[in-house]
Amino acid sequence: MAVQIEVNGVACAVAADGDTPLLYCLRDDLKLKGTRFGCGAGHCGACTVMVDGRAVQSCDTPLWSVSGRSITTVEGLADDRIGRAVRDAFIELQAAQCGFCIDGILMAVTALLRADARPGRPAILKALERNLCRCGTHVRILRAIDVAIERLAGGVQ
């Protein structure tokens, strides 16, 4: 009784218990390791992915609840116009220290920019409400987000 999901544009059948957190299906079954475990309790955002374009914390999302849905992980970000711009801006601005929090933040930001191409600072902070960074990379992350927004608005791919 495998669960059918689409991950980064590819249809997958995951043969795991329906209660298994999506996080472990991605990491264990599909070997997509960019989605990271941080707390398992929905507090830190390290495990954020997009489900049908919306940011979701995969550690407390059971597999059954995403049956038939389309999931994007950091490995699939480059295929998304917005995701690519966001990731490129982070690399350009070196917006990472240890980098452990960043993949989840890329997903949260990409989901935000899909819904709102020109979010103001408050909307950005709201979107990152559940993403923690211990290295203190926040200032650079916010700068990189501003750069990505500018680029996307300017039509630069």
């Binding site: 070997k31 997509l32 390791k33 960019g34 990271r36 475990f37 950091v74 490995e75 990731r87 982070f90 690399i91 990472a96 240890c98 980098g99 452990f100 960043i102 993949d103 890329l106």
Partner: peptide, 9 residues
């Protein structure tokens, strides 16, 4: 680190 597997984990 922004591409997938990169950590000891």
């Amino acid at each position: 680190k922004l591409s997938g597997a990169a950590f000891v984990h």
